[in-house]
Amino acid sequence: MTEDNKPDRPARQSRTGPTATGARKASAKSARSRAREFALQALYQYIVGGNDAQAIDVFTRDLAGFHKADSVHYDALLHGCVKEAAELDALILPLLDRKMQEISPIEHGIMWIGAYEFRHCADVPWRVVLNECIELAKEFGGTDGHKYVNAVLNGLAPQLRTAEVEADKASGKAR
């Protein structure tokens, strides 16, 4: 107990802003960010367990908080990544410094999400896709997984979003 008879505990953290790891807190997340999180969880089940995408979909929709996610974006990510898994891997593989089997299933799923969004979600700027994937890796991946995801997707963006990346370079916005 402290001098004023209050228990010794840390100050209450706000519900918005970053967590201790740098990831955004749940209340600060958009419906699309939540959709990416649920899609990542579903893709993890697909990659690790080899479960049927439809069964994973039914299970995931029943999870707490799913109602706050953009279900249309979630559908596109889950079913699109499963359908195009071989194509997405073919895009990612040349940018890896190790075998795909050595990549964490979390980072693998995040890279699928990034590659899929680069290819099919032109309404989402490439830098937003990149940032969202880095945030997913910070929250769910290994200690430095976000750095690996960043490097791979930064290498993929110029291939899949050529005009957009070039425009950012020309304006001095590219990393």
Score class of each variant (00 low, 15 high):
Ser71Val: 04
Phe66Leu: 01
Gly172His: 03
Leu96Met: 10
Ala31Phe: 06
Pro18Gln: 08
Thr19Met: 11
Lys29Asp: 07
Ile92Arg: 06
Ala170Gln: 13
Asp144Trp: 02
Ala64Val: 13
Tyr74Gly: 02
Lys138Asp: 03
Ala69Pro: 04
Asp8Trp: 14
Ala26Pro: 06
Asp52Thr: 07
Met100Asn: 02
Asp8Gln: 08
Phe118Thr: 00
Ala42Met: 10
Val82Pro: 09
Ala163Thr: 08
Arg98Ile: 01
Arg24Asn: 10
Tyr44Ile: 09
Ile113Pro: 05
Leu130Val: 01
Tyr74Ala: 05
Asp62Lys: 14
Leu77Pro: 03
Gln45Pro: 00
Asp8His: 09
Met100Asp: 02
Arg24Ile: 02
Ser33His: 10
Thr19Lys: 13
Thr143Tyr: 03
Asp70Gly: 06
Ala42Gln: 07
Glu37His: 12
Leu43Ile: 07
Ser30Tyr: 02
Tyr44Trp: 11
His146Trp: 15
His73Arg: 09
Ala122Arg: 11
Asn51His: 14
Leu91Met: 04
Asp97Gly: 14
Arg12Lys: 14
Asp52His: 06
Asp52Gln: 10
Ala20Asp: 09
Lys138Pro: 02
Ala42Asp: 10
Ser30Asn: 02
Leu95Trp: 00
Val48Ile: 13
Arg32Pro: 00
Glu135Leu: 11
Arg24Ala: 11
Glu117Gln: 15
Gln45Tyr: 08
Val48Ala: 13
Ala53Pro: 09
Ala85Gln: 15
Leu136Ala: 10
Leu91Asn: 04
Pro94Gly: 04
Ile103Met: 14
Ala23Leu: 05
Thr19Phe: 01
Cys121Pro: 00
Leu77Ala: 05
Ala11Val: 10
Lys6Val: 09
Arg175Val: 06
Tyr148Arg: 08
Phe66Ser: 01
